[in-house]
Nucleic acid binder design. Structure first.
Lengths: 258, 258
DNA sequence: ACATTGTGTGCAGCATTCGCACAATAGCCG
DNA sequence: CGGCTATTGTGCGAATGCTGCACACAATGT
């Protein structure tokens, strides 16, 4: 900011404002100005102006001294979802397979070192745990979706991404060693699917398969279910279902523009 | 812009940048810089800086000369959805009722003179038409959701909102006269529900009921279905279902913070 | 080939933004 | 309870970053 000749094609005020908008995540639904300033690494006055601008634009609401997102941010996502025809090409496919498999099916890709959920289908009796939705971030290291995404990258790139991600310990079974995680990802790449057991949530097994897009940033579909009585049979059934789902998405050109 | 003392608490560059982001909607999934400038009413150079900043921040992607939204915008919406626990409190309720009623159920509110879809049941189901998703805008004047939302406003406010909205003619049956539309809204307010027939899409009947939130900006749930053989019976069944759904959402305090 | 529409860049001037410093408020502990 | 500190909200001068014009060039399409 002070020092260098900064790119004159970039509006720094705008970038700072966006940073303000981006600090609102699941962990911190509403924040005070000072907290926003801290999180976005900006001067309080600067953050304040950004936040007030967002309030005026209708993306943020002010309750006393707390600021929180308004539903209008959904409209931004809506532009993306409609542009890519999620409502017609993606959601129905996920729903149908979810119904057949009797588990929820999730479409995801990589974003900023985390797994970004793009779409999700739920069936009524599915066990809902964290309440993730489209737009949620979930961890990279200990989910089948994350591992499968890593598998979709060239291995040195995967290592780089993983190095930047944090590796919390969700359960006893969570692998902690990056090398071990990469090893699992490599295995997933060869197999063409990924299964993780109880690393993110105890007693839950995750399944994921790639939606092949040669040379592009990887996209995957996955499911999770409680460990059943016949793990092998479950795995086979679910993986087969997911693979069908992935093939259908690919064929519908539903993910070509991601 | 030039003359008047503009609010020193508002960052105009940021506001302009946001305007750039907001021009991306369903109708125009990808645009050239010049088009963005036109739509956002900004100088090309200004719009260009805004767009390039968005590219750098990862919200926009540049393919040749076309710019389009990236999946990262979903993350912004994700913050809102998780903050309001849509995944746990809203989606399951919609899904369950949709399953029971065998129609799609949608939660919506008012935003910028249009109907903003907040959430939609993801149950597998028949007639999918436009492929709307959460974050989609649909018209105010000719949908049951829109009319019910108008009904939730004080009547002079409803008139003002409607006056600013455009009233296209989707079908032969679309009412064109604002007064007539307000009349229907008033009727909906008294009845506590709204039914529209073929005004948005031929052969499709829409149903909506309010999720009462005294004194706050209205929120509604609704469905649509092809006209069946027994319109009266269908209406009764669906309205009853929607009312149950609305009651449940209210009770779960799912919409308290909207 | 021409007309049209889109894109990149330099620049000068002034509006805009920065970040400090002060005021006001909340929180804490003896 | 009262005095203390930590945290928050805001006004203001200075300088920086931004705007929008104009020009040159590239890519369409007729």
């Amino acid at each position: 900011m002070t020092v260098s000749e900064q790119d004159r094609n970039i509006s720094s005020s705008f970038a700072k404002g966006l940073a303000v908008l981006a600090v609102f995540d699941a962990a911190t639904p509403s924040m005070t100005l000072a907290e926003i300033a801290r999180r976005s690494g900006q001067d309080r006055a600067t953050a304040r102006r950004g936040a007030l601008t967002l309030v005026q634009a209708g993306y943020l609401r002010q309750d006393g001294r707390m600021l929180s997102l308004t539903p209008r941010v959904l409209a931004l996502a809506g532009g993306f979802l409609q542009a890519n025809q999620f409502g017609r090409k993606v959601q129905p496919v996920l729903n149908r397979h979810a119904r057949q498999m009797e588990v929820e099916v999730t479409l995801a890709m990589l974003d900023q070192g985390r797994v970004l959920l793009l779409a999700q289908s739920t069936v009524e009796h599915s066990h809902i745990t964290y309440g993730f939705t489209a737009g949620s971030h979930i961890p990279l290291a200990h989910t089948s979706l994350g591992r499968m995404l890593l598998a979709g990258l060239p291995s040195e790139e995967a290592a780089a991404v993983l190095a930047d991600a944090d590796i919390p310990r969700h359960t006893e079974q969570s692998l902690q060693d990056p090398a071990a995680i990469l090893e699992r990802a490599a295995q997933a790449r060869e197999q063409g699917f990924c299964i993780t057991g109880s690393e993110f949530e105890a007693g839950i097994t995750g399944y994921a398969v790639p939606v092949a897009r040669p040379g592009r940033t990887p996209v995957v579909v996955g499911s999770s279910a409680p460990r059943g009585l016949h793990p092998e049979a479950d795995a086979e059934r679910l993986l087969r279902g997911l693979q069908l789902c992935a093939a259908e998405l690919r064929q519908a050109e539903a993910v070509d523009h991601l």
